[in-house]
Design a protein around this nucleic acid. Structure first.
Lengths: 296, 296
DNA sequence: AGTTTCTGATGCATAATAGGTATCATGAAA
DNA sequence: TTTCATGATACCTATTATGCATCAGAAACT
């Protein structure tokens, strides 16, 4: 014979009532059924849980220990069933969200905050990563939603623009352009540029380089930093200038001058991306959530 | 139908193997039995736990949630059974120990430390209280062992001496007796005394007053403090002198002078006390432990 | 003192549940 | 195509839980 949850349920009611007949009524079973269930439980444990006589029933020390543990087990069981059900209908669960420096600097925090308000049971797990990494992780089912530099037009993905940024030129204090109110892209043709590594920042370059080509030059990149914070650091050291977005610039630590670029109309888009099929429920909820964000 | 531990056990093995046949072999049941148990579990939860096809079986998100919770429930069950068994044989449990200021100041800490080494599963719960309180709590089964000022000779109790203290006289610095090396009891006949309230300290008075009477005086108590720390505080303020034990004096905060009393041979005993019958197992263990302490 | 009325325990028959064997349907590999 | 492995189903059996009737002992009332 094996101890089951039934034994615990019966035991706990009896431990409460300390009376076999009343407990059996609360359990909607007959008194002999309760008596024997408790006997089986005690036999299996090889422990006397109740001191009984015709006049009184009371817990032994071991019975008290079993009551505490049994209560915990039952609570845990109930919580597990509830959680499982809520996960199955998408009320609970985890959502793995990838983000770039550009996304985390602007739209993402507010978006995740609102999502959490609408779906408090879903835990958001943020994963930092550049666009290419995120797209691969989406394919490998390591990620549910990516926030990447767009536009993404690969088959198998769906996406939605969540953020648009105008590029700005960032120069160190004392730079020859630092006193300007704005610059034209062609003004930067002869400058040294600081940027991220080519592979990781490919999607940003896809946006930036065509603009420069139209302006008649190819940026000369003299320094590569690991991320946007590093880029800003190198710029403020006077290693060169860079082109980033306003939101990223806000993370700079000083010693920097932002310059609008007046002849660039194209914006850099950040998109939420997800794989087209077999969405997990939390992902589906997030996609639905994104849809009705268009009003705001 | 109700979910039982059986369902969880089967589920967890299947979640491990992800193969009905192999899992059924590990469980020493037939494959159809496992199939149906999982079906029942899913039906009861109204949740699909496994994606199945002829080629693969894999957990759903809900299945993963259930696996975590189920594992916790099973672990909790096992721990509960184990603890209950250990409580029933006295390997685990709680021991409610009462103590006086005199006991805690000397023998008790070392004694409890050794007891804990011999019975690591038993949790000692200390309760401070004067002798009379402890004896009442022992009767009411609020306490398992009391450490009280003896001798205790009431029926229904058993006791064992664990500590003997010689009384010392404590006077404030600058007192007329402060420069003595020792005093005789009769020297104190005309002093003001500071002591604890009569009801609570009855057992200490039972020891002290007869000694004074033999020396030809009745102590004049001018101040009552709540406990021994308070007594020492009032003495150091110059409110009077007191008679306590050396171990208690060590807790004083300074400004005090201890004086041996040279003509008192009787010691004040502190005893461990317990009720004579129906000892709980941890109590029995402690009593046995006390017995073989006599060597030390 | 006798009777009623509680208590928990037990014997026996029945109902509910779990399990085993044989077999089916389906998809992948040979 | 055949073979093999998978999980699902049908049918019967074994195990376990339950209810009913009843017992035995103690307490409370008459």
């Amino acid at each position: 014979m094996k101890i089951g949850l039934r034994h615990i349920r019966y035991f706990l009611v009896l431990a409460e009532d300390l009376n076999f007949r009343r407990a059996s009524e609360h359990l909607h079973i007959s008194q002999p059924a309760l008596t024997r269930t408790i006997q089986h439980l005690e036999a299996e444990l090889q422990v006397t849980l109740f001191d009984r006589s015709q006049n009184f029933v009371r817990l032994t020390d071991a019975g008290r220990a079993f009551r505490e543990g049994g209560q915990r087990v039952l609570n845990g069981m109930e919580a597990t069933i509830d959680l499982t059900r809520r996960v199955s209908i998408g009320e609970a669960g985890a959502l793995r969200v990838g983000y770039t420096d550009f996304a985390i600097a602007d739209a993402l925090p507010e978006l995740l905050k609102r999502f959490h308000q609408e779906h408090p049971g879903i835990t958001v797990r943020p994963h930092h990563g550049v666009t290419a990494t995120q797209l691969q992780e989406l394919k490998d089912d390591k990620l549910d939603i990516g926030f990447v530099t767009g536009p993404v037009r690969q088959p198998g993905f769906q996406s939605r623009v969540v953020q648009t940024d105008r590029p700005i030129c960032i120069v160190p204090e004392g730079h020859r352009l630092a006193s300007r109110k704005s610059v034209a892209l062609a003004d930067l043709a002869d400058e040294d540029f600081v940027h991220g590594p080519a592979e990781a920042w490919a999607h940003f370059y896809d946006y930036l380089f065509p603009l420069c080509r139209k302006a008649g030059f190819q940026p000369r990149i003299v320094q590569e930093a690991f991320n946007s914070v590093g880029i800003l650091g190198l710029v403020s050291c006077g290693m060169g200038i860079t082109i980033l977005t306003e939101s990223i610039y806000d993370f700079g630590t000083g010693g920097l001058v932002p310059l609008p670029i007046r002849d660039v109309a194209d914006v850099m888009v950040t998109e939420a991306v997800w794989v087209s099929e077999n969405l997990r429920l939390p992902t589906q909820h997030f996609v639905d959530f994104l849809e009705h964000q268009e009003n705001s």
